[in-house]
Design a protein around this nucleic acid. Structure first.
Lengths: 355, 355
DNA sequence: CTGTTAGCGCTTTCAT
DNA sequence: ATGAAAGCGCTAACAG
């Protein structure tokens, strides 16, 4: 029990540490030492006698004392937090990236404060505003597109910034990403190589998903460079484009360009939707239409036929982003100069059965 | 700019609020008022003259002052945090639940501290230990199975606790869930109704995924009650069971029980794996084998043929769990008594094309 | 080895 | 309408 003393009335707001809760003082009193000694005993400071430490730790166990990280970090003028924003937590690619980050940050004793921008720049700005009030020691953003206000906010926070999943023109700090445009182009070239000449693209409607937009731009550029039509583009809806929207996009694509012989999709989710819809309509894949996705989602590896896609080391992006943040933090603590770096992550076309 | 004064040396740990950063004091000085007045102006306290407020807010904007939530909440003896643990963030069902929670908590001005237990009770315990140091104002756990130490820890924190996605025998506080055993049983009865008599089950190996284990128990119970064999169970690997493991499980199932005419799976992911493998082998679904999943994942709604499954309102679980936490917090703040409640969430069999 | 003092940035409370 | 003092739980720095 945290042993809230039975004070007359509870705090109005439901305090996390109600008056009368066990604090370091309580432990100190019970152990007959000063708070400072408790503090030292807790951090295995060698300058506490074995005897004293044992006595203190015993009390700690008995009363179930849990140190208050907020107070500790506050007094240290640190927050122990890192803020990380992703377009969606309900997306296996970003979930993997978050997982990669948390591995590294956990080991460094930093807590992650997660935000889900829902592919909206204004929501990103709001989240940044809210999260900065927690004084994160570093901020990790997805992509390079941010509102002007958001850029000012994070830049003004004076903490390391890492942008991921993209190669921004004007980075705010470190970058761990890859060129989504190149990825889009690579897929077109792959399809060309496989003999496809009438290639379409299925993507998201708006520019909020800048990565998707860039893949589309890469599609167009590469198609034209190869002398293919680059205008066979179906915008399937707001990002993130779902499987169902992929299915609908097939319909739209066939209505407008019935002779399409390959469809590159902004993600495996929409690609799988296209595939399923082809199966429903009895369209042979890849016989009549080849399909390609992006992201190497689990479904792409498992479905039948297996989806050709582009694989990126999502968790690796997260780990490297976290390491970059730690590197910047470390340089700062050593008062060293450290130029922000851009790490280009590999992507590769994974040839499977649909294209 | 947070305007770090050019102090001689930065703090050793890369402080979130380095000495010399803009604080309320700075703003106060620049506006020629006391910190207290700044504080009031910021919270639109009416007891500040329009003039003064404007002047203060002007300075705030000019220097880009961002209030320090840690300090504010610390002084209020609150944390503004809610801790939420899920078995996996990379699982659309739980991601939806988290999303539902964050909707409600955002509106209440509470920040979520997320933890990913990776289906491990010991990791759950570690996470609880770590998160409690942040003094969350409420704790939301998935399921009712926790280590003894974990139970003690959260119970001792003296904050509202909500358990989700299950109906624990000995709840720690509020519950928002459903009987996974009933869900497993319901699917068997559905398959029976559709004429299936040789039903198998594909699930996870260990007991860490208690929800999966319960669905399996429900399968067995219902099968026996109907006079069917209840032992056709393939354990496909550690939870969460992947699509690929589902595919492997089909092989194992057919090797041992070649006449199986229906396969109920612990989740849509494994079910989809089974489906894809059937397609690969030219096994007619549902002609020769019916397949059923759980969770109504996106892939289940979109694949071909569409997966029969069990749907749960995942986001709703999150919202209701958050509301329960807020309810408990509110009662506490009003010093009212409030008995923890158990909310039974509906689930329903969604009949589609695979069964 | 242990204790004392001061203070982190903010708000609550009481004065003015 | 505004300010001054005290303190939230903890630790850095210095004393002993």
């Amino acid at each position: 029990m945290r042993g809230r003393a039975d004070g007359p009335d509870a705090d109005a707001a439901g305090p996390a540490t109600p008056a009368g809760a066990v604090t370091m003082q309580t432990v100190a009193r019970l152990a007959g030492v000063s708070a400072m000694t408790v503090s030292r005993a807790l951090k295995s400071d060698t300058s506490v006698s074995r005897q004293t430490r044992d006595r203190v730790l015993d009390v700690v166990r008995r009363v179930g004392y849990v140190p208050d990280a907020t107070a500790r970090l506050f007094s240290t003028r640190r927050s122990g937090f890192v803020a990380a924003l992703v377009p969606s937590l309900n997306n296996s690619n970003f979930a993997d990236t978050v997982h990669g980050m948390s591995e590294v940050f956990d080991a460094a004793g930093l807590q992650m404060l997660l935000g889900d921008t829902e592919y909206s720049l204004s929501r990103e700005e709001d989240l940044i505003r809210a999260l900065l009030q927690r004084r994160p020691e570093a901020v990790i953003l997805t992509g390079g597109a941010h509102s002007e206000a958001a850029r000012k906010l994070v830049a003004g926070a004076g903490v390391p910034i890492v942008e991921t999943w993209d190669l921004p023109k004007n980075p705010l700090g470190d970058v761990v990403g890859f060129s989504n445009e190149d990825a889009g182009a690579a897929m077109v070239r792959y399809l060309y190589q496989r003999g496809r000449r009438r290639i379409g693209f299925v993507g998201g409607k708006t520019h909020f998903d800048t990565r998707g937009t860039e893949r589309r731009a890469g599609f167009r550029r590469a198609a034209r460079a190869l002398g293919l039509p680059g205008d066979r583009i179906v915008l399937a809806g707001e990002p993130p484009v779902s499987m169902a929207q992929g299915a609908e996009a097939l319909e739209a694509m066939l209505a407008r360009w019935p002779d399409v012989d390959a469809i590159a999709c902004v993600s495996d989710l929409s690609a799988f939707g296209v595939l399923a819809e082809c199966q429903r309509r009895g369209i042979d894949v890849p016989g009549r239409i080849a399909i390609a996705g992006f992201g190497d989602f689990e479904v792409a590896r498992c479905c039948h036929p297996r989806l050709t896609t582009i694989a990126v080391d999502c968790a690796g992006i997260g780990r490297r982003a976290a390491q970059a943040a730690l590197g910047a933090l470390d340089a700062r603590s050593r008062n060293a100069v450290r130029e922000p770096e851009t790490a280009r992550i590999e992507f590769r076309v994974v040839a499977r059965e649909t294209a």
